[in-house]
Amino acid sequence: MTRESRPTVTNEFKLALPKLPRQLEAVPVETLQLHDEQTIEQGLYENGSLSGCEANKVLMEKVHFKHVVFEDMALPGVEITDAIFEHCDLSNANWSEAIIHRATFLHCKMVGLDLLGSTLRNVRFSECLAEYATLRFANLKQVEIERSSFAHADFYSATLSKTRLEQSNIDKAQFSSTPLNGIDISTCEFHNLGVTMEDLQGCIISAPQAILFTKIFGLVVKEE
């Protein structure tokens, strides 16, 4: 392989972590009455529910949510900077067109989370259940997905730059029209992917996965 034809490895980067004060004031979740363009900042929110709330273009800065339920809530256009979501339930929440920067999602349930058209920078998903999540047309840069399940997730026409996928379940995820050049999925688990051979150009895979892709694309390997 010539130097020019080698894939560009884009998963080598240092993730910028959330910048939070050492001590955050505890704020009861029940005091949050969300409304359009509201700012939520400098707080530790634990053991509460915002399920079903609706508001546009909410701003969250320097916040830590722990054991908070966001299920079925609608926050289109939400902007999140320097945030930790720990043991939260974001199932079927609508966060389309979100802008998320320096955020960590740890042990979160995110089944069906809608991040359509969102922009993610320096975001980590660790040990999250994000099956059927929607990231269509999303732009991801310096994003890490580790030990999580994104099975059946939709990454159609997304942009993945400096994105790590490690030890995660991506079975039947949709990557059509999403270039995977330099993306390492060699430690991920899947039996099928929504992907074309063109999308896979330069993608880093394991030897067993190479055999699996021959079956996915209906190729026949002739033994000598």
Rank of each mutant, 00 (worst) to 15 (best):
D114H: 12
L115A: 09
L115V: 01
L116G: 02
L116M: 12
G117K: 05
S118E: 05
L120N: 08
L120S: 08
R121K: 14
V123Q: 06
V123K: 12
R124G: 00
S126H: 14
C128F: 11
C128L: 09
A130P: 00
A130G: 15
A130E: 05
A130K: 06
Y132G: 01
Y132W: 15
T134R: 04
R136H: 07
R136I: 12
R136Q: 14
F137L: 15
A138T: 05
N139P: 00
N139A: 06
V143P: 03
E144I: 13
I145D: 02
E146P: 00
S148K: 07
F150L: 14
A151P: 00
A151C: 05
A151M: 09
H152N: 13
A153M: 09
A153V: 01
F155R: 04
Y156M: 10
S157L: 10
S157Y: 15
A158F: 11
A158L: 05
T159W: 08
L160C: 11
L160G: 06
R164Y: 04
R164L: 11
R164N: 10
E166I: 11
Q167S: 14
Q167N: 13
S168C: 04
I170V: 11
I170C: 08
D171F: 10
D171I: 02
Q174I: 13
Q174A: 04
Q174K: 09
S176C: 06
S176H: 13
T178H: 02
T178K: 02
P179D: 01
L180H: 02
L180M: 09
L180G: 01
L180N: 01
N181E: 15
I183G: 01
D184L: 06
I185W: 03
S186D: 02
S186F: 13
T187P: 01
E189M: 13
E189Y: 15
N192A: 13
L193A: 07
G194E: 08
G194Q: 07
G194A: 05
V195T: 02
E198G: 01
E198H: 13
E198N: 08
E198L: 14
D199H: 10
D199Q: 07
L200Y: 10
Q201T: 06
Q201I: 07
Q201R: 14
Q201V: 13
I205F: 14
I205A: 08
I205S: 00
I205D: 00
S206P: 05
S206Y: 11
